[in-house]
Simulated assay, not measured.
Amino acid sequence: MSTQHRHVLGLSGGRDSAALAVYMRHHHPEIEVEYFFTDTGKELPEVYEFLGRLEGVLGKPVLRLNPDRDFDFWLKQYNTFLPSAQTRWCTRQLKLRPFEQWIKPMLDEGQHVTSYVAIRADEEYREGYTSKHENLVVTLPLKEVGVDKAGVMEILDSSGLGLPRYYEWRTRSGCTFCFFQQKIEWVRLRERHPESFEEAKRYEKSAVEHGSPFTWSHGESLIELEQPERIEQIKADHKKRVERQKAKMMANPLRPDDEPLDVDDLYGQAKGCIACHK
C-alpha cells in the first residue's frame, strides 16, 4: 500500500456499504482498501454478526473505530436532548468525528485519501460526508458504474454474503434506537430485543423530563407506542401497506415472495444519515 495514497471505505453494517466493499474487492483487487466501522456501542447484535461474515468474504479484518466519547457522554453535552432528524448529533459525534480523527494524521502527513461511499445509481446523493480537505476525495463507485438496488442484491447473493439478519424484521442499519425507524420497526425492536427497547424508553423518559421537544418516534412516546391497542393498530397499518405495495409490483419470477420489502418502499424514502444507513 502506498504511504502517499490511502483508500478507505466505511461500513454501516447495512446492505449497500457491504455490497460496495465486495464490489471493490472483486473489481479492484489492485487497490488496497482499508475497511472501517465506527462502533457507537449501541448497534444491533445482528450488525456485529454481519460484519463478521463480511470479514470472511473480504478476507481481511474490518477496523473498528470506537469513539473516545460514547453516546451517554454526548447525551449529557446536549442536555439529555435526544438526537433527532433536526439535530443529528449522534451521526456528527459518534460517526463522523471518529472518522475525521482517524484520517487527520494521514492528511497532516500530506497523504491523499480516497473515501468510497455507497450511494447507488438509483439514488440521489443524499446528505453525506463532503470533503473539507484538499487531499480527501469522496467517490461513489456504485453510482458511477450504474449499480442500483437490484445490483446490490445480486452482489450480496453471488458473494454468498446475503443480507444482514436484521432484514428479517427491519431494513435500516444504524443504532438500535435510531430515530429514523418507522413505528413498525419500534414494535419489532420491542419483540426482538426487549432490553434495547427498555433502554430506549429510559433515555426518552429522562429527555422528556429535562424538556426535550423530541421523542424517539414522531408524535408519541415509546410508552404510548407499546400499548397493546396501539401495537395492533401499527401492525394493521403496516399489513395494509405491504398488501398495497405487493399489488403494485409486477410479477417477477426472480423475486421470491418472501423477500423483505424495504421500509422506504412502504413509507417513502427517508433522508437517513449516509454514515449510519449505507
Rank of each mutant, 00 (worst) to 15 (best):
His5Trp: 03
Gly10Met: 01
Gly14Ile: 01
Arg15Ala: 09
Ala18Arg: 00
Leu20Glu: 15
Val22Gly: 01
His27Tyr: 06
His28Met: 04
Pro29His: 09
Pro29Lys: 09
Glu30Gln: 12
Ile31Phe: 02
Glu32Met: 00
Val33Met: 02
Thr38Glu: 06
Asp39Gly: 06
Gly41Gln: 08
Leu44Tyr: 08
Leu51Ala: 12
Gly52Gln: 10
Leu54Gly: 09
Leu58Phe: 09
Gly59Thr: 06
Gly59Arg: 04
Val62Cys: 05
Val62Trp: 04
Leu63Ala: 09
Leu63Thr: 13
Asn66Met: 12
Arg69Met: 08
Asp70Ser: 09
Asp72Pro: 01
Lys76Trp: 06
Arg88Phe: 02
Thr91Pro: 06
Gln93Tyr: 09
Ser115Asp: 13
Ser115Ile: 15
Tyr116Pro: 00
Ile119Asn: 08
Glu123Ala: 08
Glu124Gly: 14
Arg126Glu: 13
Lys132Asn: 10
Asn135Ser: 11
Val138Asn: 04
Thr139Ala: 10
Pro141Trp: 07
Gly146Pro: 08
Ala150Gly: 02
Gly151Asp: 12
Val152Phe: 01
Val152Met: 01
Glu154Val: 15
Glu154Pro: 02
Ser158Ala: 12
Ser159Arg: 02
Leu163Tyr: 11
Arg165Leu: 10
Tyr166Gly: 07
Tyr167Met: 10
Trp169Glu: 10
Gly174Arg: 06
Gln181Asn: 14
Gln182Cys: 03
Leu189Arg: 00
Arg190Met: 10
Glu199Met: 11
Arg202Ser: 12
Tyr203Val: 03
Ser206Gln: 09
His210Tyr: 10
Pro213Cys: 11
Trp216Val: 07
Ser217Phe: 04
Gly219His: 03
Leu222Ile: 14
Ile223Arg: 00
Leu225Gln: 09
Glu226Cys: 12
Ile231Tyr: 03
His238Asn: 14
Arg244Pro: 00
Arg244Ile: 15
Lys246Ile: 07
Ala247Lys: 14
Lys248Ala: 15
Met249Cys: 01
Met250Lys: 13
Ala251Ser: 11
Leu254Gln: 12
Pro256Ala: 11
Pro256Phe: 01
Asp262Ile: 02
Asp262Gln: 14
Val263Asp: 12
Leu266Val: 10
Tyr267Val: 14
Gly272Val: 11
Gly272Ala: 09
Gly272Arg: 03
Cys273Glu: 03
Ile274Thr: 14
Ile274Glu: 14
Cys276Val: 04
His277Pro: 00
Lys278Val: 15
